[in-house]
Amino acid sequence: MKNVGLVSGQNSGVGPAFPAIEMTSGMKILRPWQRLCDLNGATLDYVLLLPAFLLLALIVVYPIGRLFYNSFLDLRLSSSVDAAQFVGLQNYADVFHDGEFWMALRNTVLVVVITVPGALVVGLGLALLANQVRRARALLRLSLLLPWALPLSFTGLIFAWFFHSEYGVVNDVLQRLGGIEPRMWLTQAWSASAAIWLTIIWKTSSFMALILLAGLQMIPRSLYEAAEVDGASAWQQFRHITLPMLTPSILVALIFRTITALQTFDIPYTMTHGGPGQATETLAMLIHKTTIDYLDVGYGSTLAVMMFVLSLLLSMVYIRFVGRGGGQ
C-alpha cells in the first residue's frame, strides 16, 4: 500500500516539461497529474478495479445501505402520506414482540436444522452409489442433475399435487398398500412441515451429491488399496479414508446449503402459502408478505435486516470453522 503513487523511474512516461523529483534512493516522486498519466503498478490495479467496484457499490452496497436506512423508517406505500417518518429503533423493538417473527424464525431454523443434514446424508449416499457405478456415468450424472435443474416453484407445485388429499399420489398409494384413510397432509401443521422438508431434501440432495461426488473422485485409489492390504473393513475404509478426505467438500456443500436454506421461500410458498395459519411460513415469506402484500416497507426492511444479520453470523461461524479445518 505504501507504494501507491511511487513508481520506479524507468517506467515513467512523463513528458520532459515536468521532470519528476529525483530521490536519493533512485525513486522519483511524481506530481499528482503525472501520477494520473503514469498508470502502472498498484495504481493501475485500482483504476482497473474501479468500474467493477462502482458497479458493485451500485447493485450491492447501495441497496444494503438503503435497506438499513429504511429499517429505521415508518414507511408504508399504502398510505397517502408520502413522507416517511424516522422512528429510530421502534421497528426493531416491534420485531422482538412480534409473535409472527418468532414463529417464522422457528420455522426457518427447523428448515435449516432438518433439511441441511437430511440433504447431506441423502446426498452422500447418492454420491457413494454413483461413485461405485462404472458404466453409463454420463447418464447417471444427468439424472443426478435433474432435480437440481428443476425450478423451485415447479418442484413445490409438483409436490403439492403429490400430497393433495383427493388427487394426490401419496394418499392413493397409501390406500392401495394398506387401506390407510386419506390424510390432509398440507393442512395439518406437522404433516405440512414434514412434506415441505421432504420436498426440500429431494430438491437439494442432488446438488450435495454432485459436490461430494467430485470430492470422492479426487481421493486416490492407492489409499484404499493400501488399506485393503492392511485388512481394513469397508466401514473402516469409509470412516478413516473417505470421510476425512471428503471433509473439505462436505464443508463447502454445507455452507452453500445452509445459506440457501435460510432463504427458503419458493417451496413452502407454492405448497402451503405458509399455512395452515402460519405453521409453515418462513422468514423470507414473512418479509415478502409484509413488504409486497402489506406494502409496509419500513417494517419489512427491519425483518430483512434481521435475516441478513442471521445469515452473516452463520457464514462467519462456517468460515472460521473452515479456516481452522484447512489449517490442519
Binding site: S78, S79, M184, T187, Q188, A189, G274, G275, P276, G277, Q278, A279, K289, D293, Y294, L295
Partner: peptide
C-alpha cells in the same frame, strides 16, 4: 379499512387453519 390486505390475510389464514383442525 385502509389496511384491508392485512385484515383479509389474518381472517382467511386463521379460518383456514381452524377448518383444517390445525387450531
Amino acid at each position: 379499512s385502509p389496511r384491508y390486505s392485512e385484515v383479509s390475510d389474518k381472517i382467511r389464514t386463521v379460518t383456514h387453519a381452524a377448518l383444517a383442525g390445525a387450531t
